[in-house]
Write a protein that binds this DNA or RNA. Structure first.
Lengths: 218, 218
DNA sequence: ATTATCTTTTTGGCATACCAAAATTAATAA
DNA sequence: TTATTAATTTTGGTATGCCAAAAAGATAAT
C-alpha cells in the first residue's frame, strides 16, 4: 500500500472517531476521501492486514496503537504546517488547509520539529484544534464549536474558523469578539438557530455562523 | 500519468540535457530515477503523447516548450526549497536535497513566491545552481566545476558542493577560500589532477576535489 | 564487413488504486 | 415479523507504474 494512501485513511479515521475510541463506518470514510465504498472496503481490509486498524466486517474500524501513532503524526504535521503557513508565511486561515493537505505527507521529523520550534511549540492550531507533540501526546481540548454548545451553559468565545470580512462584520455587530462571555438561552427547534446572551443583550445566531465560532466552557 | 511521475521525468531530462537542447538517452534517465530501462521507454512514450517531450525511438528525448516550462517550474521549486531549508531553517547543505526532492511536488505558486521573496528572490541556490524566476527565466550561469576548467585560464572560487569538515579543511590548507583567484597551470594526463596557482603557490588538486569546487571564469 | 557489445524496445506479468453494478447483510419502519 | 431502505461487500474490470527476460537495433572493435 502506498504510504500516502495509508496516511490519508488513518488521518480520516482519526478525525472521524474524534475521541479516538469510537468505531468509524465506511461510508463516512468514503465521503471524506471522495472514494467509492467498494474502494474503502478494500482499503480497510489491507489496513487491517497491516495492523494499523481493527476492522470488523459490516461493523466498522478503529485504530490500533500503531495506527493511532501514525495518525497522530500526520495530524501533527498537518497542523504544524497550517500554523506555519498562517503565522510565518502570511497565508489566510482559509488557504492553509489545502496546502497543508499536501505538505503533511513530507515525512521529516527534523523539519516539523524545526517549524514547531520556530512557532514556539504551539499546542493549538489557527482553527483551535490541538497539535500533538512529537510523541503523539495531545492536549485534550475543551474547545467546541458554538453549534455544539448546550442550553443554559456559559462559554467564552475563543476563535473563529471563517475569516471573511462579511463574517467578521457579522460578529462585531453582535459583540461576539474573542474573549466575550456568552450564555446559551435556547436553541430553536425548527432551524437550530441559537439564542444567546452576550453583554446583556439577546443575540440570535444562525446554525451556519455557529459552525464557525469556537467557544470554551467556563 | 501521475503528476509526480511526469515531474520526475521532466526534471531529470532537463538536468541531463544541461543546455536544454541536447538529446538525452534512456539509460541515463533510468539510472537517475533508479528505474528499469523498459519502464523508461514506456514513460517516454507517454510523455511524448502528452507533448511534454519529443521522443524519437532508439535515439532520445528533448523537452518541448511546454515540457521545458514544467521542468523549469520544478527546478525552481526544488532550488527555492533548498535555499529556504538551508538559509531560513538551518539545515546543512548536505541535507536539503533529499527534503526538497519531496517538497518540490507541492505545487502552489503563492507559496514558492513567498519563500523566494523572504529569501530576497535569489538567482542562485546554495550549490551555485541558478534558480529560474516565476516565468521560467534563468540567469545563465558562468559557474563551472573546477574539474571542467581549462589550462591557462583564470578563475575565481565561488562555492563548494561538499560541506564536510574534512573537505573544508583540505581547502583551507590550500588557501582555496571563497573569492580566491586561481590560474590553471596544467592538468595531469595520467590522473586528471589539476595543478593551479593560488596566492603565488602551486597547488595540486585531485579530480575528486575538483568536482566539488565551483569556479567562475574571470 | 562482421562480430561483439551496448542500448533500446517488446512481450508478458505483477501490484496498487480505483470504479460500477450486482449481491449480500444490517437497520428501520410498517 | 416482514418489507423496505440503507450500508457493505463481492465481482469483474480499468489504468498506472513497475519489472525480468527475450528480441531487435545501434555502435564500436577488429
Amino acid at each position: 500500500m502506498r504510504q500516502e494512501t495509508i496516511e490519508n485513511y488513518l488521518k480520516t479515521i482519526y478525525n472521524l472517531s474524534s475521541n479516538n475510541t469510537a468505531v468509524v463506518n465506511n461510508q463516512k470514510i468514503a465521503d471524506r476521501l471522495s472514494l467509492n465504498p467498494a474502494t474503502v472496503t478494500e482499503g480497510l481490509r489491507k489496513l487491517h492486514e497491516l495492523k494499523y486498524i481493527v476492522y470488523e466486517k459490516s461493523y466498522g474500524s478503529r485504530l490500533t496503537a500503531s495506527g493511532s501513532k501514525l495518525a497522530l503524526d500526520i495530524v501533527r504535521r498537518h497542523r504544524i504546517w497550517e500554523t506555519y503557513l498562517a503565522k510565518e508565511l502570511g497565508f489566510g486561515w482559509d488557504e492553509v488547509h489545502a496546502i497543508a493537505e499536501e505538505l503533511e505527507h513530507v515525512n521529516n521529523v527534523k523539519l516539523i520539529n524545526k517549524l514547531a520550534s520556530i512557532l514556539g511549540n504551539p499546542i493549538y492550531d489557527p482553527h483551535g484544534d490541538p497539535i500533538p507533540d512529537e510523541k503523539g501526546k495531545i492536549q485534550k481540548s475543551n474547545f467546541i464549536k458554538l453549534s455544539e454548545a448546550k442550553v443554559k451553559f456559559y462559554y467564552k468565545v475563543m476563535g473563529v474558523t471563517d475569516h471573511s470580512t462579511t463574517f467578521l462584520k457579522y460578529l462585531e455587530k453582535h459583540n461576539l469578539i474573542i474573549g466575550a462571555s456568552i450564555n446559551i438561552k435556547t436553541i430553536e427547534d425548527f432551524d437550530n438557530s441559537i439564542v444567546l446572551i452576550c453583554q446583556k443583550k439577546e443575540v440570535n445566531i444562525s446554525p451556519k455562523a455557529a459552525e464557525c465560532i469556537i467557544v470554551q466552557s467556563i
